[in-house]
């Protein structure tokens, strides 16, 4: 039989056990909540940091584009107008001195070649036709000019609606192709490039493949060209994957979410 003192002692022990367990539980809850709050703050800071980096990247790309635009405009307008004036001067000289056409033909050809070069270089720096013709046609023209310069056969298959892309994204995609093809001409010694553009799961997927000599470059040791591509893809909140092996060509897949990159 249990005596009264035993029962009192029994309840005393149980109360003490429960009280200590509750105090410990309370302490644990406070510590974990405090820890969670700190983690939340840390994540917020990381988010702000990532946002800040994104903004810096955007500013640096935008300022580079503005500078390119200015340079192309100056070249086109100022040097182009100098060549045009020079052409007029030659014609006036020809009339004043009554020179036969064949005497000034070489000079006129040189001036025309200068005008053409200025136009070609300024268009290469800034694709003025992007706004007028749209990305699809601009890319077609660009690929044609690459083929005529380098002899690389470019197979471009587009199954996506590129018209829905906003101006910044169109320019970024154009720049990415410029960078990829420039790398291809400089290092790959490729003869054929295949480019597929499709829409999949509300994303624009760009597949690039060449039959060049490939590279041993690891994803962690990218060159400036690839880093530029990566920066642009990152800015569009996209994803970039590339694979390459020596003598096995270069492949690259770029996935861009359409929701953030359309003009809608």
């Amino acid at each position: 039989m249990e005596s009264e003192s035993q029962v009192k002692f029994y309840f005393g022990i149980i109360s003490a056990m429960l009280a200590f367990a509750i105090i410990a539980g309370g302490f644990i809850i406070i510590a974990i909540r405090y820890q969670k709050r700190l983690l939340f703050k840390q994540q917020e800071l990381l988010k702000l940091d990532a946002q800040h980096k994104q903004e810096l990247l955007l500013i640096s790309i935008q300022s580079a584009e503005t500078e390119r635009m200015q340079l192309a405009k100056d070249m086109h307008d100022e040097i182009g107008s100098i060549f045009s004036t020079l052409s007029l001067s030659i014609n006036r000289l020809k009339d004043e001195l009554r020179l036969p056409e064949e005497k000034i033909a070489d000079s006129k050809k040189l001036v025309q070649s200068g005008i053409d070069s200025i136009r070609r270089i300024s268009h290469a720096i800034v694709p003025f036709e992007l706004e007028l013709l749209g990305l699809q046609e601009t890319l077609d023209n660009h690929f044609e000019s690459i083929t005529s310069i380098s002899g690389i056969h470019i197979i471009f298959k587009n199954n996506a609606n590129l018209k829905q892309l906003n101006k910044m994204t169109s320019l970024a995609i154009y720049r990415i192709f410029q960078e990829l093809l420039s790398n291809c001409i400089k290092y790959a010694k490729a003869t054929t490039v295949e480019i597929d553009v499709i829409e999949k799961d509300k994303c624009l997927v760009i597949n690039y493949k060449d039959d060049g000599q490939g590279t041993t470059l690891k994803p962690t040791a990218k060159g400036i060209g690839l880093k530029n591509i990566e920066s642009r893809v990152l800015l569009m909140r996209g994803d970039l994957n590339f694979t390459s092996q020596p003598n096995a060509g270069f492949e690259c897949t770029i996935t861009l979410p359409l929701i953030q990159n359309t003009s809608l």
Binding site: I13, L18, F20, A24, F27, I28
Partner: peptide, 13 residues
Amino acid sequence: AGFLLYFSGAITL
């Protein structure tokens, strides 16, 4: 948390 709860609860015992 397990150790703290166990030993806090059991120390009286």
